[in-house]
Design a binder for these strands. Structure first.
Lengths: 132, 132
DNA sequence: GTAAAGTCTATATCTACTATAGAGTCAAGT
DNA sequence: ACTTGACTCTATAGTAGATATAGACTTTAC
């Protein structure tokens, strides 16, 4: 398929129509051609670009970082050091978040276990734990 | 200490001054007394309340849920079932997020490992992986 | 007396979307 | 031809949970 309108692109990319327009406004997707009715017309290149964006987003790469990656991709001769740094940084952040959530899980589980027999707010073990 | 101004409360509660005012506007903290200069004057009860709020927030409990908890706490005779439900729900969500992040970690690690020898954008294994 | 630090309100900014209103367009069915 | 529903358009507002800023006032320390 050579051309498609925004709805079909949304289908193909598992991305809502509004999000596509949002990415365009953010400068992640370049402005597509418009047909006689002012409808956006996309080609397969746009689908590729959008797929790249979604892949990055699913990895927790921010919109600003994606912008940088898009610029970098146009300069094949430059060093890819910053790309590696970005990925390593994300690994660090994810590790940190994993640690936090793991700890949170134990705390929440402990709190849940303290539900007392009476089941009234006044003697609620859960609320007592929340109160530190 | 019987009374304190917002800066000291912020210190004691590990919470910024702006955040305290924000919680007040959200209805989590009741409006404190004001001194002659219109400065907020807090007592230890406010500190306790704020500590409760921060504890809940650190557990991922939303502001709206905290509002509900605050209402519930005033009714000691009612059932604490909804409190338990809330905690259980959070445990579920944290579990889900942990799974997601664990998967993300493996994907990111795999991508990082694909950094090729050349270290140029053009042959960047990392960027190639991002391109699906 | 003056300067720094603290406080006040109101408003804007952040991230990444999501939702809505109101208008225009297009294709299928009757 | 007409209508109905699905699709598209723009512009604007809303979400969560803060965080930051501007401009004015007050207090505190020297």
């Amino acid at each position: 398929m050579v051309e498609m309108k925004i709805g079909l692109l949304a289908n193909k990319s598992d991305c809502s129509v509004q999000t596509i327009r949002f990415y365009e406004k953010q400068g992640l997707l370049k402005q597509p051609m418009r047909n006689a009715s002012n409808y956006r017309e996309y080609d397969d290149g746009a689908l590729k670009q959008l797929t790249f964006i979604r892949q990055c987003r699913s990895l927790g790469i921010s919109i600003n970082e994606i912008k940088q990656l898009i610029v970098l991709r146009e300069q094949p001769d430059k060093s890819c050091e910053s790309v590696n740094q970005m990925v390593k940084q994300h690994i660090k952040e994810v590790s940190k978040r994993l640690d936090e959530l793991t700890h949170l899980q134990t705390v929440l589980t402990d709190i849940a276990a303290s539900c007392s027999a009476g089941h009234s707010i006044g003697e609620c073990g859960v609320l007592k734990k929340l109160d530190i």
